Structure formats: structure tokens, C-alpha cells
Simulated scan of single mutants.
Amino acid sequence: MKKYTIKKYKIDDFQLWNDFVNQAKNATFLFHRNFMEYHNTRFNDFSLLVFENEKLMSILPANYVDDVLFSHQGLTYGGFVFNDKIKLGQVLEIVKEVLNFLHDNGFKTFKLKLMPSIYNSFFSEEIEYALFLIEAKLIRRDCLSVIDLNKKFKISKTRKEAIHRGKKNNLEIREEDNFKLFWDEILIPNLDKKHNATPVHSVEEIEILHKRFPKNIRHFNVYDNGKIVAGTTIFVTDKVAHPQYISGNPQKNELGSIDYLYHYLITEVFNDKDFFDFGPSHENDGKQINQGILFWKESFGVKTTVQDWYEISAKNYKKLENILI
């Protein structure tokens, strides 16, 4: 009988973890330890490695708060990571053993944040079946606005007019390694004024991450007569380009700066990707939608996919016993 062993991540596992991420069917650079550990002082890491006999079969980026384990709260998405050889029966055993491990270690609840399917290299929905069996509770669902770049998509007349304004105003788009100008001149002032908030990443942090992942984190500024008027930071994976930050000055509608920038990114820079993921337009944990933001995204011809959050009782590992008959 196969034996599963659960191990809490330690620094000695750095290379083993990263090697697994590099060949997984449902992982991106966000799961690399060089990404995860830029903010390691903010979270109590409790990432797990799952071995079948001596072979690493799964990893789980995670942190804890009191007696609750979370899919790592410092990541946009998460959950169990597998390679493309994994079988359904193995997944069910792994989930059972992890929940049992959590239960034995005093955790009552596991809050699991799934990766949207567009990021997976192969079908990877074994977890959804396991969630059904353990009676997991769906606690949040976000609608992501995504362009399928392998199919025709229609940009609205209003958006085309805005794109034309950008062209008519002779705006200049530059890809740059300098994030500070955008952070200081555009992003931070706008977030402070509109939301009384600050960026998730400081400029120092995003610059460190860019140096570690230059092909995965790319930045573009828009200039009007040499003055910055808008910008965006894009997180790039094998299949998806996703804007992590986007902002423009108060004249963005008059200039057409953001529309012009995104048309360029979608049609020229990232047209070799499968998807362009604008992300959600939600507030209040997915229960309300910002109509203005959603309207803007939909005017680019997006379609909707979802990202789900689940709450799992650790004691429900018992529900995965005697499933395979």
C-alpha cells in the first residue's frame, strides 16, 4: 500500500519546491519560493509538501492565522499543485492525508483559493471533485473578465473611439524597467485619492520581483509629450497575460491613454498568449460588481470565467475514506 507523508516546508526544501513548480501542470511563477518569500515577514508560512513513499507528489502554498490554514494569502490564486502524471485516486488520497494532518495539528478549517482554469497547462479539476466529496462550502466566487486570444473578439465602438484618440494625440508607449515613476506619479496618488489605499507591492518590492522574474513581470508607461500619463504592470505566465496594476492621470479619458495602451498590449505585445485576463471587478468579497470597471472591460470583448474560494472542515478527511471501491 502506498504511504503518504506530509512535511512542512523548510528552507532546505527550496530547490525541491521550485523544481516541482517548474514541471507542474497547474503552477505559475507566483508559486516559486523567490516570489513567495518577498513578503515572508507578513505571513506565518505553513506551506506543505506531500510525498508518496519517497516521491514528491504535491505542494500546497499556505499560511495560517490561529487555527485556520489559508491558501497563501499573499498570492492571487493557489491550492494544491500537481504534476501532469497525477491520477484522480492519488489526488483524493492526498487531500485526505493533508486534512488529516491539519486536524492532527490543531487546525479546524482550511480556506482554499483555487487557481482559475485558464492558468492550467492541462485539465486540473480533480480538486473540484474532492471538494464535492468533503462537502466544502463555497464562500466566494469572482467573475474574471478574460479575452480568449485564440478566437475573434469584438471591441466596442466607444472603445475604438478612445483608442483612436490615443493615436491621434501621438501618445508614446514604452516598456521600462523603471517602476518608480509610475508608482510615485500615477499609482500611489490615485489609490490614495480613490480608495485611501496603497499598492500591494511597494516599488522596492516590485523592482526586486522584476529582477527575479524579468520575463514574467513587465511594465509599460504611456507618455504625452514626454510626461507620464498612464501605466500598467503585467504578470505574464505561459498562457496568460494579467494586468496587476493599471492607472492613469485625470486626463486618461480625454487622452485615450489607457485604452490606447491596452489595445497595443492585447493586439501586439501579448497576442501570442492564449488569454488576456483583466481580472475581477468586484467589491465586498465578490458580492458586488463595480459596473463602471466591468463596462470598460466588456467593451474590449471579454468573456467571463470564475475563481472560487472554499471553506473546508479539517475533520472531514473521514469523508474521503472508502471512496474507491
Score class of each variant (00 low, 15 high):
R141I: 03
V222P: 01
W183T: 02
T232E: 09
I186D: 07
N284T: 05
S121A: 07
Q244K: 00
H210S: 11
S145K: 12
D285V: 01
G301E: 12
N271T: 05
R165E: 06
L112Q: 00
K154Y: 11
E321T: 04
F82I: 03
T5F: 11
Q73L: 15
F122D: 06
L181T: 11
L60T: 06
V302Q: 01
D274H: 11
I323Q: 10
P214F: 12
I293D: 06
V68P: 00
F70L: 11
H39G: 00
E161Q: 13
F295R: 13
G166T: 12
D12Q: 08
H103G: 03
E205I: 04
F276A: 01
Y310D: 01
H263L: 02
D142R: 12
R33Q: 14
H195L: 12
E37C: 08
K168A: 06
A241T: 02
M1S: 05
V236W: 09
N169C: 05
K7H: 14
K152F: 08
T232P: 05
S281T: 15
H210A: 08
H219L: 03
F300I: 06
P214Y: 11
V146L: 08
N34M: 08
L69W: 07
V302P: 00
S121Y: 14
Q288D: 11
I139T: 14
F276M: 01
F46R: 12
N53E: 15
S156E: 04
T41R: 08
L191R: 00
Y64D: 13
F20C: 02
F46C: 15
E172A: 01
F300W: 05
D19W: 02
N63I: 09
K319Q: 07
Y260E: 03
L56Y: 03
W296R: 04
L320R: 01
I312V: 13
